[in-house]
């Protein structure tokens, strides 16, 4: 199932500066795995040591966070667009 994955600016250093990547998969999980296999340097920023998608990486199908759909098992159809969206967090320390 060919889909497009939109890459946020910060992660384009791992995709040869490409803002969009074509990937293949019947589900979100398969498409992201296919994408990551083509750009292995990005894997450590997407997945933790257990191979789980990092908590601050969110994936949108169109305008909808897949957490509000079927999660990583959300089915895809031809021409769908996924967007990787990090959450940004920080703070002044453990006070």
């Amino acid at each position: 199932m060919p889909v497009t994955i939109q890459i946020p600016t910060a992660l384009r250093v791992f995709t040869d500066k490409k803002p969009e990547i074509q990937a293949d998969g019947a589900t979100v999980a398969e498409a992201i795995a296919d994408f990551a296999s083509s750009y292995p340097d990005i894997k450590r920023h997407l997945y933790d040591e257990d191979g789980t998608l990092r908590s601050f990486i969110n994936i949108y199908l169109g305008d909808t966070n897949i957490k509000n759909l079927g999660g990583l098992e959300t089915p895809l159809k031809d021409g769908d667009t996924l967007m990787l969206v990090p959450a940004i967090a920080g703070g002044s320390g453990p006070r």
């Binding site: 992660l11 920023h45 990090p86 920080g90 703070g91 320390g93 453990p94």
Partner: peptide, 30 residues
């Protein structure tokens, strides 16, 4: 483009905390 992010440290120095580092991404300016 979104080049980075800013935040304030109330009553705290303008240096990143361990918490900042744990939650940061490469490439961005903080």
């Amino acid at each position: 483009g979104v080049i980075g992010f800013y935040h304030s440290h109330p009553d705290h120095p303008a240096v990143p905390s361990d918490y900042d580092r744990d939650h940061a991404l490469p490439w961005y300016s903080y």
